[in-house]
Structures are given as structure tokens and as C-alpha cells.
């Protein structure tokens, strides 16, 4: 069978589908001071996966505010800098007006994913961290 680390080179999704891959990619991103991008990507997926029930409604409001505050509000943050202004205002409006929707972070997640696919992921595959691991 193909060793996991070779699969990681196939696509970003293959990498993010493996615990060890995520860990190594995170170590690399931390070194580049952009681990927040990965955390944000998973936070968006986790938020979308929250089931619709009464207990979760309060949780969703809290979480949407937390994600907004931690990653989007600060314009100098690594995540915020990669997200389009229109996407940021859309999320701000959702949070402010309590229009909490499972898909409210989807566009922002896509923008961060594109950034990783075009930039940090190819760099990771060429990095010492990955090459030493293989």
C-alpha cells in the first residue's frame, strides 16, 4: 500500500485527511507563523458540522462570535489578511444580526483553502520538515 506521506503529496485534502499529516503540516505552518490558517479551516468545518438542535443553537451563536473575533476581526491577523473585504463584512453582518447559518463561514474557508493550495501546501511539500519525514 502507498505510504501515507506519499498520499499527502497528492492533494491538500489527502493531507488534511490524515492525523499525522495534519500534525506535520501544522508544525510547518507554525514555523511560518501561519498555523491560524489551518485552525480556522478546521473551525469552519467543525462549525458547519454542528447539528441543528436546541442545545447547539446557543453554542453556534457563541462559536460564530468566537471564530469571528479570533480570526476575522483583527485586520492584521494572518487569516483576516487573506479573506476578501466583502466576505468579512458578510460574516460580520451574520454575527451582528444573529443570522447564524451553518454555511456562513464557507466562502471564507474557501478563500483560505485556495491560499493554502496555492501557497503554503506546495511550500510544505518542498520543506525540510516534509523531506526529512519522508
Amino acid at each position: 500500500p502507498t505510504p501515507p506521506y506519499l498520499k499527502w503529496a497528492e492533494s491538500l485534502h489527502s493531507l488534511l485527511d490524515d492525523q499525522d499529516g495534519i500534525q506535520l503540516f501544522r508544525t510547518f505552518l507554525k514555523q511560518e507563523e501561519c498555523a491560524d490558517m489551518l485552525d480556522f479551516w478546521f473551525a469552519c468545518s467543525g462549525f458547519r458540522k454542528l447539528e441543528a438542535n436546541e442545545i447547539n443553537e446557543e453554542k453556534k451563536v457563541k462559536l460564530s462570535k468566537l471564530i469571528y473575533k479570533k480570526y476575522i476581526l483583527d485586520n492584521n491577523g494572518i487569516v483576516s489578511r487573506q479573506i476578501k473585504p466583502a466576505t468579512k463584512s458578510f460574516i460580520r453582518d451574520c454575527v451582528m444580526k444573529l443570522h447564524i447559518d451553518p454555511a456562513m463561514f464557507d466562502q471564507a474557508q474557501t478563500e483560505i483553502q485556495t491560499m493554502m493550495e496555492e501557497n503554503t501546501y506546495p511550500l510544505f511539500l518542498k520543506s525540510d520538515i516534509y523531506l526529512e519525514y519522508t
Partner: peptide, 20 residues
Amino acid sequence: IDSEDDLLQECISSAMPKKK
């Protein structure tokens, strides 16, 4: 603040693949 961090961390972890 701690519980806020926990909530966010829990959300992040919930989206990660489980150990194979």
C-alpha cells in the same frame, strides 16, 4: 476565557479525522 478557548478547540477537533 478558558471556556471560550475550550469551545473553539472542541470545534476544531471535531472536524479532524479520527485515528485510523
